[in-house]
Structures are given as C-alpha cells and as structure tokens.
C-alpha cells in the first residue's frame, strides 16, 4: 500500500452502567489509511490504546451482523464503513451505540426487544397437514417465485434498521422494519400455508404504525429495503381483507378521496378512517385547528386537470405485472 495516512479523530461513547454515573465521550486519535474500516480502527484502539472499550464484532465482512453501531449518527456496520468519507464530511468520527436499544456497556446494546419482535412474526413455515411436503424431494419453486422474496433473504439481523426507525422509538408496539421484512419473506413463500392469518394478525399488530420515512431502507447494509416490503404487506393485507384497521381505512379513504376530487377532504377522511364516533372524539381538536387556521377548511371542490388524476388511477388499476 503506497497510500498515505490521515489523522483520524474518534469520539467514542463510553458507558458502564455499573460504574459510571453518566455516559461520556472519549477521544482517540490515530494515523490511518483513509480506506480503513471503522471496525479495524476500533480494534486498533482496543489493541494499542484501550483494551477496555467494549463492542461486538465477529466476521468483519458484513455477513454476521454483530458490529452495527452509529457512525456519525447513522446506523451502520462498522466493518464496512470506511473512515475516509466520514472524516471528509464531518472532520471526526463519532461512534455511538445503536438507538432504540438500551446500553449494556459502551457500544454493546441489549437486543432482547429486537429478537422478541422477530419471534413475534412467527418466523418459520406454517404448514397445513392437509398439504404435506413432498416425501423425499424438495418443494418445486420456480426462479420467478424465488424473485418474489426480493432482497429479504439477505437480511443479517444486524438491527441497523431497528436503530434508525422513528416508529420503534415512538411506539413499542411497532415490530420494527426487520421483523416486518421477515414477515414479508414468509408471506410470499409458496411453501407457507399461513399467509391469510399472518396478514390478518399483522394488521392489528403494528403494520400500520410504519411512518413511511424509509430511514430503515437507508440504514440497511444489505439493501433489504424493509420500507418497500412493509408497503407490499400493507397492499397485500388490504387486498385480502379490505380496510379493517385505522391504518388500512385511512389508506383506502385517502385513495378514494383523491380519486373523487384530486385533493384531500380532511373532514371526510377522518370519518372514513375513524367512523362517526371517531369524528366526535376528534371534534375538540378539529375545532382548535379551525380556529387557528381557518384557511384549512376549504369548500370541497374538484381540482382542475382531473383528467390527469384519472389517468393515474387508471394506471394504478391496471393489473400489475409481477415483479
């Protein structure tokens, strides 16, 4: 390697709940090649400066999922994040434990809630004894059927998505992106006999709590794209069951609303989502909004250019070619 080195400053979150009153940041400065992975730098700090730094790591090749942590506020795998671009952008490298998980020590977090959510989606084939598997041979599955899993088989359960997810932070009832991507993997599995039940159950067990912010997809080191699979689950759930929950009714109401007039009728949408009782419950809040922002209450009307909107819906209604 003829490449030169750069001075890399690391500010690393340190916290030992048994000893420390509060977390602190400890600074380490090393000379490193710019393409050095963050994990290599952390192991160098452990080996040469401070053996007390605690972290999880194993494969160092982005396949075991052990070393997810926050690097300059992004949930990443330390092993595949190079220091050069981080230093170029932020001037230093701040290393913190993942979010949405309590800290056991330094960069090591408690993952029990993450694993519990994974278990809750029943991550195994649900079989129907009336349709036994072929004896002595594999179930046939075409390459096209394998394609339906999309990128979900690549998931390494690193929890970077769980760490990045604001819905996980806001509501412990949300299973998190990894668990839902895992659920998708079983829903599309032609061997699985539990699709309908799985979709019905997840409608009431957090599916609609996803905020559609796509931060999980941005964080995922394996390009599993959890937010897109959550979208697919919502579509499949509505297709199977129609609107049964606030979330699905809201989505359907939203779609019908725009189809009618090209813009939202918020009053109507509240009724579609929550029913008459829901409207009454939300009345005080509605009145406050009207008082403060009367311009929000517009007379329902159809926008100009409805023909363009109709074209969009026609395209949406056309049977989709299979991915």
């Amino acid at each position: 390697m003829t490449e030169g080195t750069v001075k890399a400053t690391f500010d690393i979150y340190r916290y030992d709940p048994g000893h420390d009153r509060a977390p602190r940041y400890q600074r380490y400065t090393l000379d490193l090649a710019p393409h050095t992975p963050v994990l290599t730098a952390l192991l160098k700090i452990r080996a040469e400066i401070d053996p007390s730094l605690a972290l999880r790591y194993s494969c160092r090749s982005a396949i075991c999922g052990s070393c997810a942590m926050q690097v300059n506020s992004k949930s990443r795998l330390a092993c595949e994040t190079q220091i050069g671009p981080e230093l170029a952008r932020d001037g230093r490298i701040v290393i913190e434990p993942m979010r949405n998980q309590s800290v056991l020590r330094d960069l090591v977090v408690e993952q029990e809630p993450f694993w519990r959510n994974y278990d809750k989606v029943q991550p195994h084939l649900i079989l129907d004894p009336r349709h036994p598997m072929p004896e002595g041979s594999e179930n046939p599955m075409t390459p096209e059927e394998v394609e339906r899993f999309r990128e979900t088989p690549r998931c390494i359960a690193c929890a970077a998505c769980f760490s990045a997810c604001p819905a996980v932070e806001a509501d412990p009832a949300f299973p998190g992106p990894m668990a839902l991507a895992k659920l998708y993997r079983f829903v599309v599995d032609p061997r699985d006999q539990g699709h309908q039940d799985r979709l019905a159950r997840i409608q009431t067990e957090g599916l609609w709590l996803c905020l559609r912010c796509h931060l999980c997809t941005e964080a995922c080191p394996k390009d599993v794209r959890p937010s897109e699979r959550i979208r697919d689950l919502k579509e499949m759930a509505v297709a199977v069951q129609g609107g049964t929950e606030h979330g699905s009714k809201h989505a359907i109401g939203f779609k019908d609303n725009i189809r009618d007039r090209g813009l939202l009728n918020e009053m109507k949408l509240v009724r579609q989502t929550s029913g008459v009782v829901g409207v009454l419950e939300q009345l005080p809040q509605g009145m406050r909004i009207v008082r403060k922002r009367p311009e929000l209450i517009r007379k329902p009307h159809r926008i100009e250019g409805m023909d363009e909107v109709e074209k969009i819906y026609e395209a949406l209604d056309r049977p989709e070619e299979k991915p």
Partner: peptide
C-alpha cells in the same frame, strides 16, 4: 436427504428453471 430436509425447513435455495 439432508438438503431436502433443509429445504423443507424453509431454506430459500436458488432454483433451476424447472423448479428443482
């Protein structure tokens, strides 16, 4: 038999065009 068992457990293997 071992590979078949793992397929029955749910392993997502790559497939040939005929589904094997």
């Amino acid at each position: 038999p071992t590979v078949v068992e793992m397929e029955h457990f749910g392993t997502i293997f790559s497939r040939a065009p005929d589904g094997s």
